[in-house]
Design a protein around this nucleic acid. Sequence first.
DNA 1: ATTATATTTGCCAAATAATGTCAAGACAAA
DNA 2: TTTGTCTTGACATTATTTGGCAAATATAAT
Lengths: 103, 103
Amino acid sequence: MSTIFGSKIRTLREEKQIPQRQLAAALEIDTATYCKIEKGERRAKREQVTVLADLLEVDSKELICLWSADKVYDIIAEEEEATQILNVVAERIVQYKRKSAKV
Amino acid sequence: MSTIFGSKIRTLREEKQIPQRQLAAALEIDTATYCKIEKGERRAKREQVTVLADLLEVDSKELICLWSADKVYDIIAEEEEATQILNVVAERIVQYKRKSAKV
DNA sequence: ATTATATTTGCCAAATAATGTCAAGACAAA
DNA sequence: TTTGTCTTGACATTATTTGGCAAATATAAT
């Protein structure tokens, strides 16, 4: 049930010794909700991720990456062909990049 | 807006010359809804995918794979770090497999 | 051209999932 | 014990997804 994203922001927050209350306020949500985000019981919204990156002073790309990875993992984790699914997606992304490079 | 899954089932259906109406009936949905699934405007439910695999006589794993890939693609397509997200997920899946293999 | 069949579109309704709050409890430090 | 922090569960709210209906548009055949 825990997420890479949740663990990451918890670690960062503890390193900086910031209380949940403070980050929750910045995100304009209840501390209960913030707590659940750290524990992976709720998913942060995308805008919230970037706000957190600022406050925790990390590259927002890094957090977005972990946050997205959690979402993808939820979709494919239970599927037998998980790895192949990733290959199909990767292939499609390459194709798209080729196409936009042409233009 | 079109999906790999939708294109695939449309192609298969046309090859077999089956009307949408017939597949829609098997899925117990409106032909309009079925039409949208082929066009990628609606997402089939997981159970519907396996029913379609039967009717279209293809391996359900194959269809599930394309169907999942569409979902994953939706999540990461707009993200700058799409490829890296896939790597993070792939890494996590490998880790999970190791863990379950140990037991 | 007219009819019949198949597909598509737009809009609304129902169902489901995601996000959030509140209140109460657990836990630790002072 | 009091204070501040964190956690949990039940419930409320909101957003998203899925489906139906009716009308429009193809597509075929006659």
